[in-house]
Design a protein around this nucleic acid. Structure first.
Lengths: 208, 208
DNA sequence: ACCTGAACACCGTTCAAGT
DNA sequence: ACCTGAACACCGTTCAAGT
């Protein structure tokens, strides 16, 4: 318990302000616009003070990534799995795209061990939430998931690849929704065995 | 035809030297190690001279990416499609991983229009070669490709996602070959209709 | 105790000066 | 004609100095 209660409140508020300013700068001008001076000005403080709350620029980015991971994990925990894998993936694409657009292309290897451990934790929580969601959705549409340690990394890589295509202009020639639908359908086909039960037949339109 | 024949030769050699030095620096120390001063020293010239051959640092990276795209396109044109989609993908994974490891995380939007057009050309050649290879491989294993403008972008995104996992330590917990095999199998399932002919049945082990 | 902002080392890039 | 390398503007980061 701090002697001056207001101090921790201010401290948390400052962290939030810095991360919010970082997100805004990334949205407006990409990584090139995220300079420590611009960040300080945007957050209403001097550059030096940022280093009171984050060890370096990479730490700011890692914290922003972590914030997105937590938000996505929360979203995945609340998404309904009743309508199957494709519906579930459609529901999380906007959030995954936002995450990739801001912090997707950040370096993997960092110099900060503590932050790495921290990130590994939220990353694995995010993967666990995605795994549970896929299992529930597969059950809901009565088809088997092709389980493997590589299952979730594969789906995640596919979502990040889609996000990369969407964020950059690489697919200007292709209709966005076509790309999203094809990707989601192909991912779903890739990780499932064909459904066999009556529910699956109904879903596929075969009223036998 | 230049007045001094040796000059153009030197010029081409210098470009090659600069790109080779850039590749070596990226391999050894990542993007952080690729500074114009280090590049100049490695290539045996002064920093200023690099700007005689490339407009800026981003241009050097774009040229390196282009070099990889041309190499991969050549490789894809020479890979045998006889053993089907999975074999074809296995054959190009090392090259795609190398490309991603060096220049994968580079920015998409550049300030140089001419270079962008140039890159778009080699990129679409690369995509066309991949498309042809997948078609041949699908024919070889007697199964239908789910054609769409999104087909090749989807497969490419999957390969880049796999490369990202392989290059970084993100999947230390997972056996590399397991990840590669699962990804390739899932990509193949995603882009094909189930094979129906006798060749396909044989391939799947059903000796009927 | 908290915060500032000048200073430092290093980056990408330019261009007057050499040979 | 070709090439150098000091100089410039700007970056991430530090820390003596203010309040």
């Amino acid at each position: 318990m701090p002697e001056h209660p207001g101090r921790w409140g201010d401290s948390e508020a400052r962290r939030r302000d810095i991360l919010a300013a970082a997100g805004a700068l990334l949205d407006e001008g990409g990584y090139g616009a995220l300079t420590m001076r611009a960040l300080a000005e945007r957050a209403g403080m001097s550059p030096g003070l940022i280093y009171e709350y984050f060890v370096d620029k990479e730490d700011v980015c890692a914290a922003l990534l972590q914030q997105h991971q937590v938000a996505l994990t929360r979203l995945m925990a609340s998404v309904a799995a009743d309508n199957g894998i494709r519906a579930v993936l459609q529901g999380i694409v906007p959030e995954t795209t936002l995450q990739w657009g801001r912090v997707g292309r950040l370096a993997a290897a960092s110099r900060n061990r503590a932050r790495d451990r921290d990130l590994a934790g939220t990353t694995s929580a995010q993967f666990a939430a995605l795994h549970r969601l896929l299992e529930d959705a597969a059950r809901a549409e009565n088809c088997g998931l092709r389980e493997s340690p590589a299952l979730v990394p594969f789906v995640w890589a596919g979502l990040m690849g889609l996000a990369d295509d969407l964020v950059n202009g690489r697919t200007a020639a292709i209709d966005r929704q076509t790309l999203i639908d094809y990707t989601i359908d192909a991912l779903a086909r890739g990780i499932t065995e064909p459904a066999t039960g009556p529910a699956a037949s109904r879903r596929r339109g075969r009223h036998d």
